[in-house]
Design a protein around this nucleic acid. Structure first.
Lengths: 194, 194
DNA sequence: CAAGAACCTGGACAGATGTCCAGCTAGTTC
DNA sequence: GAACTAGCTGGACATCTGTCCAGGTTCTTG
């Protein structure tokens, strides 16, 4: 009879392999690497080989966890939306302050510009495959939820969503970074707060 | 002594070739085909072979006019911005009416949805190559000029641009088409016209 | 401890792609 | 009309890519 927790291998730092855990970790590594590759070279740059190299694992690992390249992109997209949701939730504990929102957004855009570009690229990719559209709907619902915290007017919510999408897109396309002040001006304007 | 116009070959419908004119036309055909290919499969789908097939010309024609695939994309991007400018100018002779703007935009999005997706894809592509950034600036200046017709307030112009970008992006990402009413509600809201 | 599942890996192979090229023909210029 | 330019063409070639596979190792389950 064993009273030990059922899934603790040898517990100590043995010479063993730790496969299942490493497997999960590698999967995560691959998805992060995919986003980085997309950010650098677009969806077109995503290949099993490129992603595996970026993640620092043998090519076969990529083909094992994601048999087709499309699987890699779909999983990376799903993961991105989750990460985006988490970032938003962390940035806005329950604040109704547009200044805080603008600061957080500007910082995020400045720090993770490439990641942002990658997300847009993945969204465009998803727009062309019906099976991935639900993910886009999830993302949009998330944004609308945020907007709802600032105004109850449905038109204002729509305008807010559109303006935020547009600002993020401009941040990606523009050469200079978007400042928090610029963002806040637009956000306040759209919310009729001035 | 010849009083004829200097560059009229045999004038009649001869069995001759008409190369130079056909050349120009084929170049145009190839660019239009490129946009269509991008709309269908993204920048990743653009190859000399695919574009040539779409345009109905032999593969070598594509490699002759655009030695590298990047040349094809750069030219298509440039062309797209021109077409966009022309479409805007045609749609808004000198109207200050948001209803008219919304109707035109909705019609354009509904009819040329794939083309719109292609444009976004090309913009994202351009964002990653410094040498193509000027084209993006040109496009943005164009949008700001339109905005300036509706308001003098610089913040309103920025908000208008962001909202319009966001709306167009949503139109591409959404399953259902964007209606003129939806667009006008947002536009009027952003212009503080209600 | 035996069986099976899950993970790992290097390699193989057909197919697609970018790019170049030699040779050709229709226009143009002198 | 001779020389030159510009458009046109099919094909060649190295390279890269997606996908599959057989064989191996570790972990889990009964």
């Amino acid at each position: 009879m064993r009273t030990d927790s059922p899934a603790a291998p040898p517990a100590g730092p043995g010479p063993a392999d730790g496969r299942v855990q490493r497997g999960r970790e590698r999967r995560r590594l691959l998805l992060a690497a995919t986003v980085r590759v997309v950010g650098r070279g677009g969806v077109a740059a995503v290949t099993h080989r490129a992603v595996a190299a970026e993640a620092g694992v043998p090519k076969s690992v990529a083909t094992y966890h994601f048999p087709a390249v499309a699987d890699l992109l779909a999983a990376a997209l799903d993961d991105s939306v989750d990460a985006y949701a988490a970032a938003l939730a962390r940035a806005l504990p329950e604040s109704y302050d547009t200044a805080e929102l603008s600061r957080q957004l500007a910082a995020y855009l400045d720090e993770h510009g490439a990641r942002c570009a990658a997300e847009f690229d993945l969204y465009l990719y998803a727009a062309r495959r019906p099976e991935l559209r639900p993910v886009l709907a999830r993302w949009h619902a998330l944004l609308a939820e945020i907007a709802g915290r600032f105004t109850a007017d449905p038109v204002a919510v729509a305008a807010f969503c559109a303006a935020l999408d547009g600002l993020m897109l401009q941040a990606v396309l523009r050469a200079e970074p978007l400042t928090a002040a610029e963002i806040q001006r637009v956000v306040d304007h759209v919310l009729h707060r001035r």
